[in-house]
Structure formats: structure tokens, C-alpha cells
């Protein structure tokens, strides 16, 4: 091949690649850089204040609200998702039913997140007459997480569970017993990882919660029936109403750190369990 053409190809890919790498690193660095100016103990531990609200004080209720919301939604989505996957992999005998469950996983996975907000809002708030609350938002977000956990759990069960099940059944042990005593313990850590990632995903999703529970201002939630503050929603409000760009950077920073922490934790456990070099690099270098 001609010298010039060869270098043309090389340069083309190098330019494309380096642009993407630059943008990627740029995003992280930018948020950290801009956010770290705003972060202080006051910002982390106080309620938002000022006029309009959000221009002073901190984001403490939003951090706690986000954690509650993430945990509840993750719990809700994981229970149903894992349950459905368990049924699908180990107990479902009918091929048609299997297909239906599978299709519904992919159908739900493909839905835009706002659909869950739309349905959650009309069903929970309008039809059932519930107040905007932590519970409603968690249910709406949880629905979104069902396929997220379900598809992963299904893979985990198929790859890690099924081989053991065969062994166990050849010992004449019932399926239900094997699932309870063998499969679930074996898969536990991976399932937990999937749930944690789902939690991170749910925590950051504004669309399902913006009309079902998240509000502009609230204290640390005292019960499931109370509205709550959430970091991504707070960020959205700050930005879209032009309240405070500076505080928006701070909020974005906190949200980013929270989500990255969950990701690190998940990859960290994967590292300790498998010790693969690639994962190890992923873990170490991201700190």
C-alpha cells in the first residue's frame, strides 16, 4: 500500500480516537474541577436556603433523599427482576411463557424512562389518588429497573446456576431446595452487584420521579409517604430555572461521586472474587 494512504488511515483513526478520549476525560475532569470549588462541609451538610431557594446552603436532604430513593427503587426492581429471572431460568417449563417473559423484559428495557413517569403519574397519583411521595417515585423508578436487573440476573443464573443445578439434581435433590441452598448463595454477590448498579441507575433517572415524588424543597424524608429531594432533580431545577449554575456544578459533582462510588464498589467486589487483571486495572485506574 502506498505510504501516504497508510498514514492517512492511521491518522484518521488516531484523530477519531483521540477526540473521543479527550471528550471522555474532559467530561470527568470538567465536572470534578468545577464542582470541587463549590464543595464544602456546609454544602454537603446543610439544607438548601436563600432566595430563590437553592442559591445558598447545601444539598444534604437531596443526598439522603437520593439514597433512600435509590435503595427503595433498587429493592423493588431487584426483587421482581430477580424473581422473574429465577422463574424463567429454573422453573418455567412452557416455551411460550418463557418467550413472553423474555419479550416483556426486552420490551420494558426498550421503553423510554419518561414512560415510567407518565404511567406512574397517571396511575399512582391520579387514579389511586396518592400524594407525591418517596414510595410512588420508588415504585415508578423500580418498574424501570425490573428489566435492568432481570436481564442481568437471567445471565447470571444461566452461567453460574444451571451447571450446579444439574449436579445437584443428579444427587436427587429437589429443585426448590437446590435453588434456596445452592444457587442463590452462589450467585448472591453477582446479584447484589447487579442490584447495586440498578440502584445507581435509578438514582440518576429524573424522568420517572419528577412528577411522582421529587420536589423542589423538602427536608430529609421522614416516611415513605412524604415527598423528597433528589440530587438529579435538584440539579435539573437549578439549571433549567437558572437559579445557580455554581451550585449546579456542586450538585453534579456530588451526584457523580455517589454514582461512581457504587460503580467502584461493584467492580471492587468483582476484583476480589475474580482477580482478573483487566478488571483490576479498571478498578485501580479509576481512582
Amino acid at each position: 500500500m502506498k505510504f501516504s494512504r497508510r498514514w492517512g488511515v492511521r491518522i484518521l483513526f488516531a484523530v477519531l480516537g483521540l477526540t473521543v478520549i479527550f471528550v471522555t476525560f474532559g467530561i470527568f475532569v470538567y465536572v470534578f474541577y468545577k464542582g470541587s470549588d463549590v464543595i464544602s462541609l456546609k454544602f454537603l451538610l446543610e439544607k438548601p436556603s436563600g432566595l430563590p431557594i437553592g442559591t445558598d446552603g447545601g444539598v444534604f436532604p437531596a443526598i439522603i433523599g437520593s439514597l433512600y430513593h435509590g435503595l427503595l427503587a433498587g429493592l423493588f426492581g431487584s426483587l421482581i427482576g430477580i424473581g422473574a429471572a429465577l422463574y424463567l431460568v429454573f422453573f418455567c417449563r412452557s416455551a411460550i411463557l418463557k418467550k413472553i417473559v423474555q419479550v416483556s423484559f426486552y420490551f420494558l428495557a426498550g421503553l423510554p424512562s419518561i414512560i415510567f413517569g407518565l404511567i406512574g403519574y397517571t396511575v399512582l397519583i391520579f387514579r389511586f389518588g396518592l400524594e407525591r411521595s418517596l414510595l410512588c417515585a420508588s415504585v415508578a423508578t423500580g418498574m424501570m429497573l425490573i428489566p435492568y436487573v432481570g436481564i442481568r440476573a437471567q445471565k447470571i443464573f444461566q452461567e453460574e446456576g444451571l451447571p450446579y443445578l444439574m449436579e445437584s439434581q443428579s444427587l436427587g435433590i429437589s429443585k426448590a431446595y437446590a435453588v434456596r441452598k445452592l444457587i442463590l448463595p452462589v450467585c448472591f454477590v453477582n446479584l447484589l452487584s447487579a442490584s447495586a448498579l440498578a440502584m445507581a441507575y435509578g438514582m440518576g433517572a429524573v424522568a420517572p420521579m419528577m412528577y411522582t415524588g421529587a420536589v423542589l424543597y423538602a427536608g430529609v424524608p421522614e416516611g415513605l409517604d412524604r415527598p423528597f429531594m433528589s440530587l438529579p432533580y435538584h440539579l435539573y431545577i437549578l439549571v433549567i430555572n437558572g437559579i445557580s449554575v455554581e451550585f449546579a456544578y456542586g450538585t453534579a459533582f456530588v451526584l457523580l461521586v455517589l454514582i461512581l462510588l457504587i460503580h467502584f464498589a461493584v467492580r471492587g467486589t468483582a476484583f476480589f472474587r475474580e482477580g482478573g487483571e483487566w478488571r483490576w486495572r479498571r478498578l485501580r485506574n479509576k481512582r
Binding site: 476525560f25 440518576g204 432533580y233 435539573y236 453534579a252 451526584l255
Partner: peptide, 16 residues
């Protein structure tokens, strides 16, 4: 792994 992490960011941050 860095590029992967981008996928984990909430879309609000992207919007912002």
C-alpha cells in the same frame, strides 16, 4: 473502562 463509565452517568448531568 473510562468510556464505559460515561454510560453510567445520569442523563441530567449530560443535559447540564
Amino acid at each position: 473502562s473510562f468510556i464505559d463509565m460515561l454510560a453510567g452517568l445520569p442523563s441530567v448531568i449530560f443535559g447540564f
